[in-house]
Amino acid sequence: MLAVQNLEVVYDDVVLALRGVSLEVPDGKIVALLGANGGGKSTLLRALSGLLDIHNGEIRKGVVTLDGASIGQLKASAFARRGIKHVLEGRRVFKELSAEENLRVGAHANRKNLAANLDRVYELFPVLKDRRDGQAGLLSGGEQQMLAIGRALMSDPRYLLLDEPSLGLAPKIVEQIRDIVVEINRQGTGILLVEQNATMALAIADHGYVVENGRVVMDRPAAELRNDADVREFYLGLGAEGDAAKSFRSVKHYRRRKRWAS
């Protein structure tokens, strides 16, 4: 199990981004992590993947553990080798490399099953197979997200940390990404899913957390969160009457005005 306990993270020695967060990602489960902008979701993923350093971030208190052993002090490459792969916010494909080269870089931490993993990724994302030799930067937003996820899968990760994979994508593509996440999980990978699109995330998650201002304000089974009145109002865009604000944009807009804790 991948976990953090009482984690405090500071950027630039001054910005306190996480204030005592505890969270668990059990093997083979999907865990959703929700919360308003600036709440600390990406920071938590960075702590779980060794990427705080490059942002001049630092763990001040608490621990990151993998199967009980503290791993918070390791380098990013060591996290990847231990089977924890972070799909960064904003896709971040290597734009000037071909799609297939992107995937081959994804195998860097574990090249053992490169050929088999390539087949597996092309099976999950047939569109990438068609465009394997094209420059990744020329792919559509949805295809780039698929490439970013596929790239992470190339090293057979035990845990996948997804940072807002549906951001800026059309509803059809979001559905596709959702199904892929479910399929990846079914094949045995534990998933920590950070989402703006709470409807999507809670629909497939086993458990959910809500963070606000660097603190966990909710920690419940996803089914409970789906039915919680506050969550429905603030994160699912559902009013008391239960009328759904279907558009992702309006959900986002709504949430920007109202903050969880206020």
Binding site: E101, R111, A152
Partner: peptide
């Protein structure tokens, strides 16, 4: 692999680190 990793790192260092480079 290392040559490819170097190209990737030149394009996006953090994304390359996330791949274990």
């Amino acid at each position: 692999p290392i040559g490819l990793a170097m190209r990737a790192s030149a394009l996006d260092q953090e994304a390359a680190m996330a791949q274990g480079v």
